[in-house]
């Protein structure tokens, strides 16, 4: 099965499962740069792989049964002698016995998979993800379950160990889904859903909200970045720290403007006066791969564009278009945010 999967991907001409909207120097020639990183069939974790295998088994079975039905129909219409087809035994054999047999086997397979998915180990890491309209708030939890730090729209996980996701919502129903790693699970007001899965190899996997949640449901995506445990530790240590100070004069000016413009009313940048809780935490914003929950690549240009035209780019989201910045000031704020690695 793994072989078929691999072949299909090659046949589709896309061996790109490891790349995102990556910065230009990495992305030559790969126009649909995100292709296959949100696919059910190109998976990178045990849960996703098992469902991928199940899918191929069912596709093959379904194709066989479809051929059988089409074949029987053609034979019934065009065939010569076919008295064996014209009595109720034929109907019972193929309409009752065959489906019962095939479905029983399939059901056993499916139930064992369901049971395996429901099994829980001691997770190596707990992450609480809260669905917001239309982005993802991500809390990393300590061993005691307390919030360690918060980030947004991008989830780093170590490879090879089970990670538990604690799924909540702050408004309507959303659904948390990273097809390369596992199936989806809803985020439902008043309920807490728990989901456990792991990534087998390092890579960038895209997730997207899978339950209709209003105006901008289409633009509510995120990345899961799986990294080797060592790299993950570095990442974690970096993210536990407050934001870095700007390295350039432009960045320093940007920081001042960020505070002065009142961005801190909605956004938090740890280590600064900005401590708003309405919008995504921006402490390490510059290190993320996307702006506006997976909607745009992240660089100084898109950051600047988002700040001044967020209502044009994603109408109805809570962030107003900030149109009162002079050009160079806008650049400064963008440079500051881009520098928050």
């Amino acid at each position: 099965m793994r072989a078929i999967t691999a072949l299909t991907i090659i046949a589709a001409g896309a061996t790109l499962s490891g790349c995102a909207w990556i910065l230009p120097d990495e992305s030559h020639g790969s126009r649909p740069a995100l292709m296959w990183i949100q696919s059910i069939l190109v998976t990178a974790g045990p849960t996703g792989n098992a469902i991928g295998t199940l899918s191929w088994v069912m596709f093959a079975g379904a194709a066989a049964i479809l051929l059988l039905v089409v074949g029987f129909t053609a034979y019934a219409i065009f065939g010569g002698r076919r008295t064996w087809m014209t009595n109720p035994h034929f109907v019972i054999a193929f309409g009752v016995a065959m489906p019962v047999l095939v479905l029983s086997i399939l059901l056993l397979y499916g139930l064992s998979l369901t049971a395996r998915s429901a099994a829980r180990e001691q997770p190596a890491l707990r992450i609480e993800v809260v669905g917001e309209r239309w982005w993802w708030r991500v809390h990393y939890l300590g061993a005691d379950g307390a919030h360690q730090f918060v980030t947004a729209n991008e989830i780093a996980i170590p490879t090879g160990v089970p990670v538990e996701f604690i799924l909540k919502t702050s408004d309507v129903i959303h659904s948390f889904w990273v097809p390369s790693l596992a199936g989806k699970l809803d985020m439902i007001p008043g309920r807490i859903n728990r989901y456990q899965f792991s990534a087998a190899r390092p890579g960038i996997y895209r997730g997207q909200c899978a339950e209709y949640c209003g105006a901008q449901h289409a633009l509510m995506a995120f990345y899961v970045v799986a990294m080797e445990p060592d790299r993950f530790r570095t990442w974690l240590e970096n993210h536990e720290m407050p934001a870095s100070e700007p390295a350039t004069a432009l960045g320093t000016k940007g920081k001042e403007l960020f505070i002065a413009a009142g961005c801190g009313a909605c956004h938090t940048i740890r280590g600064t006066a900005a401590s708003g809780l309405i919008g995504p935490d921006l402490t390490h914003f510059g290190g993320r791969r996307s702006v506006a929950a997976g909607s745009f690549p992240n660089n100084a240009g898109t950051i600047a564009g988002w700040i001044v035209s967020s209502q044009h780019l994603k109408p109805g989201n809570l962030m107003p278009s900030f149109v009162n910045l002079r050009g160079e000031d806008l650049r400064a704020v963008a440079a500051y945010l881009e520098g928050l690695k």
Binding site: A300, G327, E328, L330, E338
Partner: peptide, 18 residues
């Protein structure tokens, strides 16, 4: 900005070839 410091268009991570 190297051509027009007042511009809103930031410096972008684009190499010379690109």
């Amino acid at each position: 900005p190297s051509l027009l410091p007042q511009t809103a268009m930031p410096r972008l991570p684009i190499s010379h070839d690109d």
